[in-house]
């Protein structure tokens, strides 16, 4: 069976976002999550550059150059949207007012550690952006990423090898093969598998034990 596409991963995650949450989406696949939350389910999308209540991407000809998201893409506002500056935006993040943050990842460990900003201790000019603030501050952190690297190396690991973004911060991982909860004191627990994939097959592509309950 084929693994989930990027869009399917975003859709799978979006299905688990309930009405009423304030959600910050990282750059890449996380940004695509918003496309899969139906408009009748009211979710407030916060962007770290001080937009609280983003709407869908603008229609052609309707772009406003003053409105962008964290990924520097043009956006619209939802009804009820508001603006703040960076200090207040990150006070909201650091202060635990964001119900969910969705980030990409290089590695997630069974203790909930996340590595997603630098690929070595000697990385030339690593770019952290707001990832560490979000990892430390959001109420929940879900990571969406491929299960393995392009050359097949597991990204679901016992301990991260890359420099950490945050310690014990990840609650759930959505990969192209599975949905895994990170349970403190236990590790990865399988919530869901991509259609046609067996636990044994997904376990073989993981470098940490996958529990079933």
């Amino acid at each position: 069976m084929k693994p989930f596409t990027r869009d399917q991963m975003a859709a799978r995650l979006a299905a688990d976002v309930p009405e009423g949450w304030c959600v910050n989406l990282g750059i890449g696949i996380p940004t695509m999550v918003a496309n899969h939350v139906p408009p009748e389910r009211e979710v407030i999308f916060q962007s770290e550059n001080g937009v609280i209540g983003m709407g869908p991407a603008p229609a052609k000809g309707q772009e406003d150059p003053w409105l962008i998201n964290a990924g520097k893409q043009l956006i619209t506002l939802a009804k009820g949207a508001s603006f703040v500056g960076h200090a207040d935006s990150f006070a909201m993040i650091r202060g635990g007012h964001i119900d969910l943050c969705v980030l990409g990842g290089f590695e997630v460990a069974e203790n909930g550690d996340l590595a997603n900003w630098a690929t070595s201790e000697n990385d030339t000019a690593p770019a952290v952006g707001g990832a560490m603030d979000l990892a430390a501050g959001a109420k929940r952190l879900w990571v969406v990423m491929d299960h393995t690297t392009k050359d097949g190396r597991p990204k679901i690991v016992e301990r991260c090898g890359y420099p950490l973004t945050g310690l014990g911060c990840v609650n759930r991982v959505y990969t192209n093969l599975a949905v895994l909860d990170v349970v403190p004191g236990k590790g990865f627990v399988v919530r869901d598998l991509a259609p046609g994939w067996s636990l044994a097959e997904v376990q073989a592509k993981s470098a940490a034990t996958l529990h079933t309950n």
């Binding site: 500056g85 960076h86 935006s89 990150f90 650091r94 560490m132 430390a136």
Partner: peptide, 27 residues
């Protein structure tokens, strides 16, 4: 980190010499 950058600047403007944040702890 972006939020720490904003808060370090805010602290300067607000007359606070230093502060503690969980951001980047252990990294």
């Amino acid at each position: 980190p972006q939020g720490t950058l904003a808060e370090r600047i805010r602290a300067a403007g607000a007359g606070i010499p230093a502060f503690y944040t969980a951001t980047a702890a252990g990294t």
